[in-house]
């Protein structure tokens, strides 16, 4: 499912044999296609590296504990909660944030949006907008997971033999998008926007 070539991870932090107890590391994160070299406190998460060190504030901090999904980004092509990822452990990782989504489908010249971004605007798939970047990255990930044949809890209970792709029914979308909370309650429009893009 990873759509990116595996990065070279033969060098980087923590590679010097016996740990020397230093608590900072220099890492390179490839963010939206651009390598960004940073010296960070080992405690810094990918989310905080993006928001506080790279001024990429698209990924949001809603809970900081993997309980809301607002921080969802794509890491090596897979959606994940960036608030739970120590940046030091992701040296070399390919990270796509909401700021880079449009470029996944082509050069974002002229301000073109990713089809999901446009569908969210058209369907009013958000209100306050705070969960939106996470919803979008999660939807991109969920669509590629389904295309790769990954089941969800609802697929696993009802479907026949495994094999790609899993059609994204509203039930499938709802289950697969449940890791992204929206307190404004935009869920019906979010599901509609994803349907617009996938059917």
């Amino acid at each position: 499912m990873a759509t990116h070539p595996a990065p070279d991870r033969s060098t980087g932090p923590g590679r010097s044999g016996d740990p020397d107890r230093t608590t900072t590391s220099t890492v390179t994160l490839r963010v939206n296609g651009v390598p960004r070299r940073l010296t960070l406190d080992n405690r810094t998460t990918v989310l905080d590296a993006l928001r506080e060190h790279l001024d990429l504030t698209g990924a949001k901090k809603g809970c900081d504990h993997g309980q809301c999904g607002a921080c969802t980004v794509l890491v090596d092509g897979r959606r994940t909660n960036s608030c739970l990822l120590p940046a030091v452990a992701h040296d070399g990782a390919e990270i796509t944030t909401v700021e880079g989504l449009a470029e996944l489908v082509g050069p974002a010249e002229g301000g073109a949006l990713h089809p999901l971004q446009q569908a969210f605007v058209d369907r009013d798939g958000f209100q306050c907008g705070y969960c939106t970047p996470g919803q979008l990255c999660s939807a991109v990930g969920a669509i590629s997971e389904a295309a790769a044949g990954h089941p969800s809890y609802v697929t696993s209970l009802t479907a026949g033999p495994p094999g790609p792709p899993v059609p994204l029914s509203p039930d499938e979308i709802r289950e697969r998008m449940s890791g992204n909370l929206c307190r404004c309650g935009a869920y019906p429009n979010i599901v509609g926007a994803i349907e617009d893009v996938t059917r």
């Binding site: 990429l56 504030t57 698209g58 990924a59 949001k60 901090k61 944030t97 909401v98 700021e99 989504l101 449009a102 301000g111 949006l113 971004q117 446009q118 969210f120 605007v121 058209d122 009013d124 958000f126 907008g129 705070y130 939106t132 970047p133 979008l136």
Partner: peptide, 17 residues
């Protein structure tokens, strides 16, 4: 549609923090 919709779906909208 929301006039700030594009800012919100591209991550350009900035919140207090």
């Amino acid at each position: 549609v929301r006039v700030e919709g594009r800012e919100k779906v591209t991550g350009a909208a900035r919140y207090a923090a």
